[in-house]
Design a protein around this nucleic acid. Sequence first.
DNA 1: TTTTGAGTTGTTCGA
DNA 2: GTCGAACAACTCAAA
Length: 480
Amino acid sequence: MNSDGRRAAPPSLVWFRLDLRLADHPALATAAARGPVVPVFIWSSEEEGAAAPGAASRWWLRQSLEALDASLRQRGSRLIIRRGPALAALRALVRQTGAKSVCWSRRYEPSLVARDVKVAEGLRADGLEAETFNSALLFEPWEVKTLAGGPFKVFTPFWKACLHRPAPPAASAAPARLDAPGTWPESEPLDSLELVAKTDWAAGFRPAWEPGEKGANARLAAFVDGGAGSYHEARDFMAADGVSRLSPHLHFGEVSPRRVWDLVARCAAAAPGRGPEVYLRQLVWREFAHHLLHHFPLTVAEPLRPEFSRFAWRRDLKSFSAWTRGRTGFPAVDAGMRELWRTGWMHNRARMIAASFLVKDLLIDWRDGAAWFWDTLVDADQACNTLGWQWTAGCGADAAPFFRVFNPVLQGRKFDAEGVYVKRWIAELAALPPAVVHEPWTADPAGLAAAGAYALPLVDHARARERALDAFSAATSKDR
DNA sequence: TTTTGAGTTGTTCGA
DNA sequence: GTCGAACAACTCAAA
């Protein structure tokens, strides 16, 4: 109730989640059109289960919430922060503000879908309106269907089906201003959520990233102006600036996929070439990951292909630990893992090399790799992480042919010919010539001495490859 | 129902 | 050095 006694529209709560932006935000736009808005973020990692953010994601979240609050304040509003459980927090806010409706963007992680259904039911039982919107995807995961009406398990037909769907609505602008409620409810201080580790592990993140909507738009603009046209050629070279680096911004919803699609497609229309289209396919891979997660929610923890559930993964804590620290002795693997640790992100080519090494060369369970990525990637996303690791392990959709085992030396030579990338992240290799930088154990004595602090290879790749081929053919053969 | 062509990202070997 | 074929058999999606 407003203190001045005027008959004002009751406020609406807008529950912010992975949609930390103001532009192209249907839940916010809907609420803002009705009257006063109370934007709220609820920290509730206990009830989010496997979808609760890892350490790197929490660092990002901390920065992004701060940025969201700042841009809300520019529009006469602010971000209210509360602790979960979500339903209790929303009910308390409803009591304190007199809100009559709650709007939010849908999330798709299996552990959250069930929770969110209960939240909506609870609010409606209280006589409130609870409205949910799609702000994270181009298409809802259940909208894209095969002719038989089922889910896709292969990317290319999924891509074609997406292209034949009606285009999603164009991205909309941020509301120019937001009406404030009569009085603001209390907010927890952002610092009290303790999202950032006490030790400054993330020192290397700051120069690499600008979390928040402004940073997302800057990154998108830079990509559209610079890299999109040559994306198809440059994206595989790990030392180059050839990829968009939009993944964390997309994960946290700081920019909408529709806006990314619009701008890249416009760029394709203005200067036709393979680059933009190849990038748009990547954007649809993100959709495909959510499609699979929706239809096969158990794949978070179980292989999509059931024959893999009996696979005898090796338990090898020492090797796993060496992998996490970037000390496997294979520079193409270790550079990626060190880039991850320092910046919270890894080039996609390096992700494939590092993941293949863990799963194929070390025969360590893909779920252990996924858990490490979950904790250390700023773009950690349950749908994409699950798809990526199952793809690498060959147990998911679009399974890799059994013989596709990445050779870390060849991959290094091919996609980092001069060794610029490995030297950037592995100081011990600085003095080695390109000819041996991806296999330092073959360097001459002087080179070996220079690289002395670097690790020896954990495995002989040729032998490890044979071992992997045997193990995978044993697991997938029908007759047993 | 059956058939057919295809399936993100690789490696190796031999010509 | 470059190039094409071979590397299992299977599953998916559509005709």
